[in-house]
């Protein structure tokens, strides 16, 4: 077991390194000059050159990538200029390991940008996750139990409809009508628990989380429903019912257990993806999470932030995959030899 985990971790690290390399190549082999964009509109050629040097874009992509990896392991300083360090140390920014880069646009390390945005995305992800898991399983079971009735059809159809509407339409609808036009809730703006207490935190997260949950719920409703239906035809369920056990306990003790493993797998991967920020939902509600950070970095052409985020979000997915694989291995020992 230990060996398996180590091997998976090793592969994960290799994967991350390769991914960061591919990312650098993708961004730097494109025929556009980041320095020019960073320098602004009224820039002379000389000024562009200066900017290029200050930003380190004059080095080859491969060198920049090596510098990046080194930064992740041991940290680095920006700009890397020994004479400047002596003459004007206040101009040097330290970026401690794990250094994901330094945003010249915002003049902070990418890590601190992420540190600021992450709680927002995490809060959203957690609340949305709870909503869709509880809602999805509940409605899935109800649909399965009432199979073939209007309730079943209604639940399945509605969840599919919410899934099929573009997320930003749902989000904007909730924002513009529920919050602004009808004034049923305040216009959401992220407040930490420290600022607004649990109540303030929850109420501000409600609409954006609901937007996400409505999108994700459909899959869980269908999956739960399918598993419950399938397992209800299994022999052991029939046996349990024949023994005279009531429908409720059978449903939850026997049926759900079978459905739980795939649900948890799916939920784990969805959750990991969402932790990396819900780009559209965060943009619609103006929540400064990782997703909004991506959009803002893209608008201002903040390359270090974009690259740092790609690598970080990739890491989330890879780690989530490892966790899921290891869990599988725990559940089913045969996987380990595969």
């Amino acid at each position: 077991m230990f060996a398996y985990v180590v091997r998976r971790l090793f592969i994960g690290v290799i994967l991350l390194i390769v991914m960061s390399l591919v990312t650098f190549m993708l961004f730097f082999l494109m025929p556009q000059d980041p320095a020019r964009v960073a320098c602004g509109k009224n820039c002379s050629i000389a000024q562009i050159k200066q900017t290029e040097k200050a930003l380190g874009y004059d080095k080859p992509a491969l060198t920049q990538w090596v510098d990046f990896l080194q930064g992740v392991v041991v940290g680095r300083e920006y700009p890397e200029d020994k004479t400047l360090r002596e003459k004007a140390p206040e101009l040097i920014s330290d970026c401690a390991a794990p250094c994901l880069g330094y945003s010249r646009v915002n003049q902070v390390t990418v890590a601190s940008e992420i540190k600021e945005a992450f709680p927002v995305s995490l809060s959203l992800a957690v609340l949305a996750f709870l909503m869709w898991i509880i809602g999805g399983v509940l409605f899935g079971v109800i649909a399965a139990v009432t199979k073939g009735t209007v309730i079943d059809r209604g639940i399945v159809a509605l969840s599919l409809v919410f899934y099929a509407f573009p997320t930003f339409f749902i989000g904007l609808f909730l924002l513009k009508f529920i919050a602004i036009k009808w004034g049923l809730v305040d216009v959401p703006s992220y407040t930490t628990i420290a600022e607004g207490g649990i109540g303030g935190w929850l109420s501000n997260l409600f609409l954006p989380s609901l937007t996400l949950a409505l999108f994700f719920m459909a899959g869980y409703v269908r999956m739960t429903r399918a598993f419950v239906l399938e397992s209800m035809t299994e022999d052991y369920i029939r046996t349990a019912r024949a023994k005279g056990l009531k429908r409720g306990p059978v449903l939850f003790k026997h049926t759900m257990r079978a459905a739980l493993t795939p649900l948890v797998t799916m939920a784990g991967l969805d959750f990991a993806g969402l932790m990396g920020g819900a780009i559209i939902t965060e943009s619609v509600f103006n929540f400064n999470g990782l997703g909004k950070l991506v959009v803002d970095a893209n608008v201002s052409y903040d390359l270090p932030t974009l690259i740092g985020l790609v690598v970080l979000l990739g890491a989330f997915v890879i780690v989530a995959n490892i966790i899921v694989d290891v869990l599988y291995a725990v559940i089913d020992p045969r996987v380990r030899v595969a």
Partner: peptide, 26 residues
């Protein structure tokens, strides 16, 4: 002065000062 790092720093001489010394871009 911290050069480029001062981009979002505001050191006031007017009737107001910024809470927390840094302007948050977003």
């Amino acid at each position: 002065d911290q050069g480029a790092k001062s981009n979002y720093q505001m050191f006031s001489n007017g009737p107001y000062r910024i809470e927390g010394s840094m302007w948050n871009k977003n």
